[in-house]
Amino acid sequence: MQFWLIQTLNSIAFGGLLFLLSSGFSLIFGLMRMPNLAHGAFFMLGAYFGATFMNWGINFWIAALMAGLVVGGLGIVLERGLLRKLAGNAQGQVLVTLGVSFIIADVCLMVWTGDPVPVPAPQWARAPTFFIGYAFPTYRLVVLGVAVVAAVLLYILMERTRLGAMIRAGVDDMEMARGVGIRVSLLFMMVFLLGAALAGLGGTIGGPIMQAYPGLDQDMLPLALVVVILGGVGSLLGAFVGSFAVGFIYNFGTALFPDFAYVILFLPMVAVLVLMPQGLFAGARQ
């Protein structure tokens, strides 16, 4: 019983983490029509930066926000510096993000060496929480809380603000959005900042669970891809549902059949591709 409860909580927490990673990925894909293959590298950078900031004695939450801001800034540099120049050549943009992800991964290896860097959880969240006789790891609950807060804020941003309405317009019909005077290229920058910052924040938040290690980027990127294939491109709801689905499948898969975790992860993706190739909650008209 304890096993199932703990694994369920782990799955939910991991799903929350995946949401931080893949919501930005999905929004960028929805608006800019390109999968940002540097997204896993952004996540990894977030974890490393978070660990470094905390080593300097900075509080966990401030370190996480700072990591998000730094990675977000890097996202802007990538968007303005490289992707802008390739506007209209989506395939070139994807390949550039792939190249950048290799560069980031190698620079991380150079700076933080090949050994895993532990990211400490906040002091108060290290002891387990007791609830109806079971011990729960407190930090997983914290991760879940952060993901829910992020989801609510993103929902408000997307559905209740002018910026969100403009982003939705861009996702739905870019030509028309341009036509009514929305500065879509500015939106690209905003969404890239938002997505990269979320990934960086997610990296620090996920750090105490996953640690920061070389290869983290390539462990996370496929998960974001699967989430978006499941949930549909550019859909916040799809990213939310997809994240928790993948969180459960991946976590229970790893716990029960360690050799096949990847294959099990792949099955729902195949099913969705065969039955509804647009994803369960398709956002972008393609």
Binding site: Q91, L225, I229, F260, L265, M269, Q286
Partner: peptide, 30 residues
């Protein structure tokens, strides 16, 4: 599977499928 989509979604699916083969090669030690 990959040809269910076209363009960059095709690219994304081939990447995901390739990573699954990698996962098998890396994790299925037996």
């Amino acid at each position: 599977l990959a040809l269910r989509a076209s363009g960059l979604s095709f690219l994304m699916i081939t990447l995901a499928l390739g990573q699954i083969v990698w996962g098998v090669a890396y994790r299925w030690v037996g």
